[in-house]
Write a protein that binds this DNA or RNA. Structure first.
Length: 463
RNA sequence: GUCCCCAUCGUCUAGUGGUUAGGACAUCGCCCUUUCACGGCGAAAACAGGGGUUCGAAUCCCCUUGGGGACGCCA
């Protein structure tokens, strides 16, 4: 049978890192097996679901490059199908109507909690044979005895006693199906072979298996993924943690890098750290997924990102970089085309934001001097040497790195200077700060005319 | 509280009965150096604890401890 996996987000926010990791593993598994990967939007909660959330989540997946097969399915479009099955279940006494009020349910729950027992529905309506009416829900007649055992592809054998489960609601009083019901039916109808999801769903699995088995529907295989914890070792939360995938984009993280970081959170292939997308697809398997939850490390993400930025020959991020430079307010036409500066800046940047800031002096003529550095390096008399550099640069025949480098060196020799004594004030004149690529490279990239203008301006200001 | 699950350096992990317990991030030191970086070399750093099983346990079993998850007309 052809492998088919799905990612089934609820449209109640954006794509967060946990969801992205789940989607990635699901996607990798399908791609590795030449199977299908589909999307299912679980929008059965009318209160919380929004269309904008669906768009956000899809955009997140697109940015990451996690492409899907088939049109995404909305559960809200399938209510007739759920209804059909529900009617059948009630007919077959696999499910029943229940009119217990929410207040009765909550006091029951409080009582059970007070008695220190697991809160469960007491099956009051199970044998009452109620008819459907405005306020009724449909509950599942969960088996009373025995246990549910399934073989999780990551965790191995998991066993839960039916006495731990209760008659869960399948359909709300507003007519919408609940998660455990809709997900089980959809996985069956959509012929999902492998349900890959977070391990917070382990406890739902026996419920879904019972529903499927009651209906004599085939049960898919399950693979639960360990959770991702934040740097405090707590579960990632929207309040405290950077969990929106698009936030990483704004921070200058490359999608390939985020994917690479995420794939190593819970999965490994010996000692390998860096994987191209194709390698991930080729090497991914569920057998090497870890069981323990993992802590998210921004440091390591940045390290991986740095690797990808350095690897500009294979990863194209010029358009993204250009957007950021424009956002900062610089004019890309003032300086060299971006692909020409890559070799000089790529190995210096952890993020695209760093990169953009570092190369900004090439794309703006408003140089803001870092004043403490100015006073430190613009020592008495250095202006004379700087003037010599200007003169020689103006007289230069060509404009090569080698030639520029020779000019700097000759002035240093002429005036008996140490390299930084001359290089630093020039660097400040050209870039505003003390940190940049090599001084000859900077001069080369800024260009003759602008270099001369900037050095002259700096000399005027500091003499 | 009840149930389910997990447990190797600070972090991500390799390891599937016999290893000096390996790699990576971060940290620290040295080297390189034209500033900041990059890079190179090196150091420190772990099998949660206790019982078994075994000639031999990080690896298998049990208990304890710690952590996570679930217990909704959320997903």
């Amino acid at each position: 049978m052809r492998i088919k996996t799905r990612f089934a987000p609820s449209p109640t926010g954006y794509l967060h890192v946990g969801g992205a990791r789940t989607a990635l593993f699901s996607w990798l598994y399908a791609r590795n097996k030449q199977g299908k990967f589909i999307l299912r939007v679980e929008d059965t909660d009318l209160e919380r679901s929004t269309e904008i959330s669906t768009t956000n989540i899809l955009n997140g997946l697109k940015w990451l490059g996690l492409d899907w097969d088939e049109e995404p399915t909305l559960q809200s479009a399938r209510i007739h199908r759920y209804q059909e099955i529900l009617n059948d279940m009630v007919d077959k006494k696999l499910a029943y109507y229940c009119d217990c009020s929410k207040s009765r349910l909550s006091s029951l729950r409080e009582q059970q909690l007070a008695e220190k027992i697991k809160p469960k529905y007491d099956n009051k309506c199970r044998e009452r044979n109620l008819k459907s009416s405005d306020n009724t829900v449909i509950r599942f007649s969960n088996p009373l005895n025995g246990k549910v055992i399934f073989d999780d592809l990551v965790f191995g054998k998991i066993s839960v006693d039916n006495s731990e489960l209760d008659d869960l609601v399948l359909q709300r009083s507003d007519g919408m199906p609940t998660y455990n019901f809709a997900a089980a039916i959809d996985d069956y109808d959509m012929e999902i072979t492998h349900v890959i999801r977070g391990d917070d769903h382990i406890n739902n699995t026996p419920k879904q298996i019972n529903i499927l088995e009651a209906l004599a529907f085939q049960v898919p295989k399950f693979a639960h993924l360990p959770m991702i914890l934040n740097e405090d070792g707590k579960r990632m939360s929207k309040r405290h943690d950077a969990v929106n995938v698009m936030q990483y984009r704004e921070e200058g993280i490359l999608p390939e890098a985020l994917l690479n970081y995420l794939v190593r959170l819970g999965w490994s292939h010996n000692d390998q750290e860096i994987f191209s997308i194709n390698e991930m697809i080729k090497l991914f398997d569920l057998a090497n997924v870890n069981k323990a939850s993992a802590t998210f490390s921004k440091d390591k993400l940045l390290w991986i990102n740095k690797n990808y930025i350095q690897n500009f020959e294979n990863i194209n991020y010029i358009n993204e970089l250009e957007d950021i430079i424009k956002q900062i307010g610089a004019d890309i036409k003032l300086g060299p085309p971006l692909h020409k500066i890559l070799p000089f800046f790529a190995k210096r940047s952890e993020t695209l934001i760093d990169f953009a800031k570092d190369c900004l002096f090439l794309y703006t003529d408003k140089i803001e001097y870092n004043s403490p550095s100015v006073s430190r390096f613009f020592t008495n008399g250095i202006q004379t040497s700087m003037n010599k550099v200007v003169d020689m640069l103006e007289g230069a025949q060509g404009w090569s790195l080698e030639e520029i480098s020779q000019i700097i060196k000759s002035v240093i020799k002429m005036d008996s200077l140490k390299f930084p004594q001359l290089a630093q004030p020039i660097r400040i004149a050209l870039t505003g700060d003390t940190n940049s690529p090599g001084i000859a490279e900077v001069i080369f990239l800024v260009g003759k005319e602008r270099t001369v203008a900037r050095i002259n301006a700096a000399i005027r200001l500091n003499s």
